[in-house]
Design a protein around this nucleic acid. Structure first.
Lengths: 117, 117
DNA sequence: TCTATAATTCCATAATTATCGAATCATGGA
DNA sequence: TCCATGATTCGATAATTATGGAATTATAGA
């Protein structure tokens, strides 16, 4: 994953309305939720929701399909996995519990607060 | 981790300058990097960097300590781990590779594109 | 075709965020 | 104390983002 795509994904999630919507879709699973129901649940105007959903879709974190008059949105779990992988590989080096098999060797020998220099 | 803190952390990372700076600090490890050196590396004004670092510090993703005339910034790996844990628990349900032990049971039976309804 | 429903796009406005020069603060050394 | 260096805060400005009403588009049913 390129840094720019990671930033796009992080931006998509870094907003209260969108994170709430995304969590709702994660809860709902592959079946997804209709736009109108999301808007009602979050208590915001449909046009505002469209604005936010378009961010999530553009980042690839959410997919939409039409079902009759409604448009169903569903979380794209694979995309979320890829984001997690990016963060693990690029933002966790040196830590232990962050991700699989990213040893602390990369950051050099562990220096324990050498403020004495 | 509360959703608001997660959003703060995501916002901190969801910006090119800040993500680059954070990755630099992750690379550097616990020893950290002086503010001036970060600004030089990123090619931005010191005042701009301060602005961005304050975001990262406020989110808890980065810590600062003074060393003589310079201020050294270092990644807080624990905070990053906690963010990863939050995302795994709240944004990955139903997926397999996202995190440890979050079974797909939570999202109900896996529905394989039931567009036939 | 007409109507009702669901959603999006368009538009204006408000709010937030990013940028950097200038001024200020903090530290170390002469 | 004075000066130089490193960093932050302040201030103005530019750019981006969020909000919701009104208009538009898409679909289903009468």
């Amino acid at each position: 994953m390129e840094p720019n795509h990671a930033i796009e994904s992080l931006q998509a999630l870094a907003q209260e309305t969108r994170l709430t919507a995304f969590r709702l879709l994660v809860e709902a699973g592959p079946r997804g939720v209709a736009a109108g129901e999301i808007a009602r649940t979050l208590g915001i105007a449909p046009s505002s929701l469209s604005f936010h959903l378009s961010h999530l879709v553009h980042a690839g974190l959410v997919a939409s399909r039409r079902a009759g008059r409604q448009v169903i949105y569903a979380a794209e779990f694979d995309a979320m996995e890829r984001l997690m992988a990016y963060l693990t590989e690029n933002c966790c080096r040196g830590a232990e519990g962050c991700g699989p098999l990213v040893p602390r060797i990369a950051a050099g020998p562990p220096i324990v607060e050498d403020r004495a220099s």
